[in-house]
Every structure is written in C-alpha cells, then in structure tokens.
Write a protein that binds this DNA or RNA. Structure first.
Lengths: 242, 242
DNA sequence: GAAAACGGTGCCAAATTTTGGCACCTTTGA
DNA sequence: TCAAAGGTGCCAAAATTTGGCACCGTTTTC
C-alpha cells in the first residue's frame, strides 16, 4: 500500500472513531506500530492537529477543526493569489515559494469552476521577470481595459488577435498575431506573440496596444517561446522599447 | 526531491510553457529522461490529459481543461501564501493585492485559531523594503536549503536557532540567537535576531548562514524590533554587509 | 533516402526510501 | 506496583525509485 493511501486511511479512521490507539490503527491499516507512529508524525507536520493522551486509557484524537480548507474563494481572489505567488517566485531567492505553489495548486483544484480554468489558462502563459533596477517607469501608460477579456479568450481558445500598436517612436501599425505568452517586468506588461506575416516572435508593451479584438474562427498552435529559465531574453528588447 | 514535488514541478512547467519536450523537462526538474517519462505516465494515470506530438518538432502539451483532484491545504502552505502576498504588497507595483488579502483571510478562517495567531505573529515580524536601485547583487550567494525548515520552526514555535555565520569580511563565527524578524530587501533576505550573549539585536544575511539547526526545547519571548513603518533602519547596516 | 529530433518501452543494477523490529523512556490509571 | 498508553533512536532488511542502455516508431528537414 502506498504511503499516501495509508495516510488517508489513518485520517479516515481517526475521523470515524474519534479516539483510537496506535496499535488499533496499525492493525487496521496493516502496518507496524512504528510505521503508524511515523505516519502520525508526518500528518502532524502536514498540519493535522492530533491530540494524544498518554497513559493507560489514552489514545489519539484528531482535532476536527484542523485542516478545514473549505474556503470558497471567488475567482478574482484565486487569480490574485496566483499572480502573487508567480511574482514571488520571479523575484527569486525567496524562500517558501515551493510551499506557496503547492498550496495554490490545491486551492485551484478545490475550485472546479469553468471560470477558474479560463483564468488559469490565461495565467499559464504568464512569465514574470526580475525587477529591473534601471527601469525607467516614467512613460508607463494605462492599459486598455478591453485587453484582458480579449487575451483571456485568446489564451484559452488559441484564437488570433488583432490590434493597433504604437511603438516607442510613436509609429502606429495594425497587427494580427498569435498570442503565445505574457511577460511581466513590473510594472510593465508585455504580450509575446508570433507574428505570421513577419514569421518571427514579436513583443508588445500592453499599454501601447489599443482597440484589441478577437479574430473569430482563426486559431493557432502553441510554439516554444524562447525563454531560458526564469531569465528574460527580451531584456534588451524591452529596454529598447522604453 | 520527493516524487510528489517533482510531479507538481512538471505540471507547473507544462502549464507555463505550453509546449515542452521531455528532455527539457528532465533538465528543469533535475531528473533523467526515463524518470520524467515515468512521471508523465503517472500523471496520465492520475487523470491529467497530456497530449504528445511525436516526431521532429513535437513535444508535450497539457490540456488545461484536464482534471483536478481534491484539496487539502497544510498550515505551512498557508504560511507560504501569506508571505507571498505580503511580499507582493510590499513590491507595490502589482495589482490585485487587496483581492489576494481577502482570499487569504478566508483561508485563515479555516485554520485553528492558535495556528492563525502564530502565522499572524510571524507576518508581523516580516519587513519588506523597497528594491534599492543602487543595490549590488553581485555577491548574493545561494541560500542553504536547510534554512527554510529550521526558520519555519523557529518562527512558528519560537525556538532558538544555532548556525555558522560568515560576515562581509569572511570571518566565521558560531551563533545562537532568537529569531525575531525577517527583513526582505529584494533580492537579499536578512534574519533579524536577538543575540543573548551580546544582549542586542543582530542581523544576518540569509545566504551567509550555514549549518542552521533548531535548538530543541529552548524557546524565547518576542521582542519589539525597532522598525519604523516599512522603512528599513538597517539600510546602512545592510549596505555595510555587502 | 538518410539523418535528426521527437515520444515511448523493457530491462536491470544501483541508489534511495520505507519499513519493521527491538530496546528503552515517560506518563497515567487501576 | 503493574499494565497500558504515547514516543524516540537505531539498524538491517525490504521495497521502491532511479538512471542508464538498447531499441522502436514517427515526423520533419536536408
């Protein structure tokens, strides 16, 4: 029997019986007394609160208050948490990131609404870079509020997107691209997209995009976006865009 | 690395990259090609839908709609999430902080009250400064992975900690201190601790700490750490440490 | 048509983790 | 005082996981 399953069995038994002894548990799950003790210890590490009464007539009791993670989070809340943790990881060298990730994975799983999946698909394409100390933030403009819904659709359903773009020198152009990823270099947001007419990746500062719209019925394949680890190979490009 | 964690890492990577090859995955999670293949197989058994394109130019793709299982959030995971959100709020340039806070508040309600008190107490000890543009990051070393569990225990249970420290001039010393706060000046982390033998606060760069261990049974009282608002009065000190 | 870049399988020895047994400790109720 | 309870440290045996290796079948590229 797998460890995981045995742990589950122990928790179930504790829930059911209220009070149990280690030997009974060992008997029930078919493991040795020593192993059950180890399991109990592991469960405590995981956060289960298990009271133990030592001495004759004693036993184990699972605190029913422990491990209640029945939090019903709203979709925007989960979304916000996801971004927090992604940003945290991107900052680098932060302890506990793995734990936070693991926790979020569980939260997600507890919220099986379609809307969450939509947002998640959107977030899957999110790359968050290091804060650039030399960044010039002065010309960061507001983002078009229509962007988010359009790109949500784009990332979830892989539909192409059309928009107007104004580059660093103020030149305007019309684009039709395949959105492949989002790149966040706080506080700037970029869209990384494959441009079929140029047959190459291009990236667009989100606050320079206007009049975005979904191109109905025109879908695309995902490509390998050339990111290396968490380091942003577009650093030079983004600087150029400033 | 535990199997379960590797599986999570793989799912995360698949989500992030959209399209990946097995060799890339193996590289990323630090396992062999064969092991990753086995993991993929296991994930498929668990219900994840992973499409594979064989042949040159092919790769793996995770169906974002694919199944998710039940949730069980552990206290350390909530702990990690709290830190993430606190860090993000301090960074100041990402939206959605309020939402993330609201979400976490809901999660907290599900935990036993004493745990929440501990978590809050820890958060109170977390000070996150602004990124200094002039920061010299060149000598930031890797943190000892043993630090995390030791300091988690220290902050949650108020146990003293023993470790070796190497200061800016390379001098080594042994320390036994009471961890009072964590100071984050991205990307540097400092431990702010009361040193009983010196009868004063000392701070330690996390990446210069080695061989950390919990001093079993020796606990301490919290003290008032002399921070003012979110500004770090140790700025000079930390610079001295660079 | 050959080579290269993909995913995938079977097998086995080595590495790693888990397990069970044992001795022994402390606490508690009868 | 004794028996029944939880708990720890240690170690060798058992089980599982891992990493090579050889080899297959596709598909794209040259």
């Amino acid at each position: 029997m797998k460890v995981r399953h045995r742990h589950d069995a122990i928790v179930r038994s504790l829930r059911r019986n209220g009070m149990t002894t280690i030997d009974d548990l060992a008997d029930e799950v078919g493991a040795s007394r020593r192993t059950v003790l180890r399991d109990i210890s592991a469960l405590r590490d995981e956060g289960f609160v298990i009271h133990s009464d030592v001495g004759r007539g004693g036993g184990l009791q699972l605190d029913p208050q422990s491990m209640q993670t029945t939090a019903r989070l709203s979709v925007p809340e989960v979304f916000a948490l996801l971004i927090s943790v992604a940003a945290m990881r991107a900052a680098g060298n932060l302890p506990f990131s793995d734990l936070a990730d693991a926790g979020l994975a569980k939260i997600e799983k507890g919220l099986p609404s379609d809307k969450v999946k939509d947002l998640r698909a959107f977030l899957d394409c999110l790359h968050i870079g290091q804060l650039s100390p030399l960044q010039d933030l002065s010309d960061m403009g507001p983002m078009d509020p229509a962007l988010l819904p359009v790109f949500e659709t784009a990332f979830l359903q892989r539909t192409c997107v059309r928009f107007d773009y104004r580059d660093a020198k103020g030149r305007r152009s019309k684009r039709e691209v395949e959105p492949q990823a989002m790149l966040i270099l706080p506080p700037l947001w970029y869209l990384v997209a494959w441009d079929p007419t140029r047959d190459d990746f291009r990236h667009f500062r989100m606050d320079r995009i206007s009049r975005p719209e979904t191109i109905e019925g025109q879908t695309f394949r995902r490509r390998h976006v050339p990111f290396e680890d968490d380091v942003c190979p577009y650093r030079e490009l983004s600087r150029k865009h400033h």
